[in-house]
């Protein structure tokens, strides 16, 4: 290997992208999740991170004509249990476009700890090419790190150096094999008195009426290329006759930062057939 081998000239004209299998969401992301980089989806629980992940695991198998990568996908999950029934339900909508049973080409691996993830990633190279994997989903990165570290400077340093190791490994594999890498992240509440560091397009992220920000802090934010944020707004629907109606949740997705996307957002709903953008 020589330094001149790292030169890529001329540049490819297009980055390949993985569809979200919804034209509106694809439009928001200019075609989908780009390959070769790490995309983070951050949201509080119950907004739809895992729904997005499951949808992508299936979409990766779609043929290129439908915006997929016609490849297998790998899901590393740290939030238990894995929603296999929901995955099965979703897969029924993909069967007609995919030659084999879609569930056969989704590989699932539970994660126990950050070191376990790192160990797994270092053994992944041969597996990726053997199984023709083009998508890795980690759901979620925050759950791995939540309990293991104390809030002391030394521990935080150890934690952030693990972030960079994991991210660097993922980026290496992403660019070597043309993988799309999607990492979900949880959010934490923002306490007013604490220093307010703005990262990305919005200084003020709200979900369910609470001020939140993606978990794992500034050093992890340096490790991802694209950050998407999902949030929920609750609305009381007034019924006729002045009765107090149901609480209706509306869901939104927004680009917090991305090298190729402007600040934009879109409403979405979760239906039986998956996550769908809404034009309102």
């Amino acid at each position: 290997m020589k330094p001149e081998d790292l030169l890529r000239h001329p540049l490819p004209t297009q980055t390949s992208k993985l569809t979200l299998n919804c034209p509106l969401l694809d439009r928001l992301l200019h075609g989908g999740i780009p390959c070769g980089t790490i995309t983070e989806i951050a949201a509080e629980s119950g907004v739809g991170k895992t729904q997005f992940s499951l949808q992508l695991l299936l979409a990766a198998q779609l043929p290129a004509a439908r915006g997929g990568l016609s490849a297998s996908s790998l899901c590393l999950h740290s939030e238990f249990p894995f929603p296999v029934r929901r995955l099965h339900q979703l897969s029924l909508f993909y069967q007609s476009h995919i030659p084999n049973n879609p569930l056969d080409r989704i590989f699932i691996q539970p994660l126990q700890s950050p070191d376990h993830l790192l160990d797994l990633l270092s053994r992944l190279d041969s597996i990726i090419s053997r199984l023709n994997i083009r998508l890795i989903v980690i759901d979620s990165i925050a759950a791995l790190f939540r309990s293991e570290f104390d809030n002391t400077p030394l521990e935080l340093k150890r934690r952030s150096s693990l972030f960079f190791k994991i991210s660097s490994k993922l980026k290496y594999q992403a660019q070597k094999f043309g993988l799309a890498v999607v990492v979900t992240n949880q959010v934490v509440d923002v306490i007013e008195s604490s220093g307010n560091l703005r990262i990305g397009n919005s200084g003020f992220l709200c979900s369910s009426g609470r001020r939140v920000c993606p978990a794992l802090g500034l050093s992890w934010a340096n490790c991802v290329n694209i950050r998407l944020f999902l949030w929920r707004e609750e609305e009381r629907v007034e019924e006729e006759g002045g009765d107090i109606g149901d609480i209706k949740a509306r869901r939104f997705i927004r680009v917090i930062f991305a090298p190729h996307l402007p600040d934009c957002s879109c409403e979405f709903v979760i239906e039986r057939e998956g996550v769908l953008g809404v034009n309102r």
Binding site: K2, P3, E4, L6, L7, R8, H9, P10, L11, T13, S168, K171, Y172, Q175, K176
Partner: peptide, 29 residues
Amino acid sequence: PKDFLDNIFYFRICSYTEQIAVINYLEKF
């Protein structure tokens, strides 16, 4: 626009070893 892209020599680096190697190679390049 294509001409502009052709005039960018793009190196993709995946480790610090590669980074040091490319910076040493820059002089020759």
